[in-house]
Amino acid sequence: MFNLISGFLRPNSGEIMFNGQQIQGLKPYHIAAKGMSRTFQHIKLFPKMTILENVMIGRHVHSKSEFIAGMLNLPWTRREEMRIKEKAMEILAFLGISDMADTEATSLAYGQQRMVELARALACEPRLLLLDEPAAGLNMRETAEMGRLITKIRDSGITVLIVEHDMSLVMNISDEIVVLSYGQKIADDVPLAIQKDSEVIRVYLGEEND
């Protein structure tokens, strides 16, 4: 699902609308430039790069130095680099992980790596943030912290779309939940209503036998 929306897979039919534009068939980098950013279920940080550098990649769509400017290290390129760095530090501070800025990304614990992925996606300043199982592999304390951060991101004005089956996270932070079963939508409502939905209960918890 996320791979279709973010352009990693090409849909066989149908259309995907984002901000009033069709985006099916576009390459991922193109969709990212349109204001959609994502994380991965299996963490995909850039190894051999620091946390700060990982997050700075997120600023790629908001900067424009190319080969020639980079090779000549022009003054405006240097200024742009400074701005990229400042913004990346700002995002690390927002998520409370500034102290790890110079650590190599892959040397972190799993939960922290998820946090860096989130920071990197946020650095794109997306309108829509896709989080692919953000609680996967996290313990309860880390999940709660992740939930708190996602709420904070939502409150800053970014739409967050989450695929997740950790119910404690989903029920606590969602405004609206869509339930899928084998690719078919079976429910779409606020958390409380979802909890009472008979179809959802039948599919996910099983039927009561009379």
């Binding site: 973010s6 991922p28 990212a32 991965f40 995909k44 850039f46 990649i57």
Partner: peptide
């Protein structure tokens, strides 16, 4: 993959 998703062509 991740690089592409971050907007790098």
């Amino acid at each position: 993959d991740a690089s592409n998703a971050m907007g790098v062509d």
